[in-house]
């Protein structure tokens, strides 16, 4: 499902124009981004939880250069699906799979 399909479906369900949905969705995501940046997790019922954490620097082997590399620390976003979503999708087999 693409972003435009998502916006279209939401606009039908909430009875709002697509551009309005687009604006609100963008605003929501921007707010979520800001909250995540403050090291605060965000959870949406029925959807899941977003958190950020810092991966420590670590040693890794670069097979191309055949050298050990020290990878720098990195701050990443992690998503954990809500248990209800996980359960509902757990055994759903897609047709084209």
């Amino acid at each position: 499902m693409t972003n435009s399909e998502l916006i279209k479906t939401l606009s039908l369900r909430l009875d709002l124009s697509q551009s309005e949905i687009k604006r609100l969705l963008k605003g929501s995501i921007d707010s979520i981004k800001e909250i995540l940046d403050e090291d605060t997790g965000v959870s949406i019922p029925g959807f899941g939880t977003f958190v950020t954490y810092v991966k420590k620097k670590r040693k890794s082997f670069n097979p191309y250069h055949k050298k050990f590399m020290m990878l720098p620390p990195k701050r990443v976003t992690k998503y954990r699906p809500s248990s209800s979503l996980k359960q509902e999708l757990k055994f759903k087999r897609l047709k084209n799979d």
Partner: peptide
């Protein structure tokens, strides 16, 4: 909006196996 977004995402995953949310 957020609840519906979760729901639509679920439907999208069921249907296509992938959902793209811009941003």
């Amino acid at each position: 909006l957020l609840i519906e977004m979760a729901d639509v995402t679920k439907e999208g995953l069921e249907r296509d196996g992938r959902v793209n949310i811009s941003g």
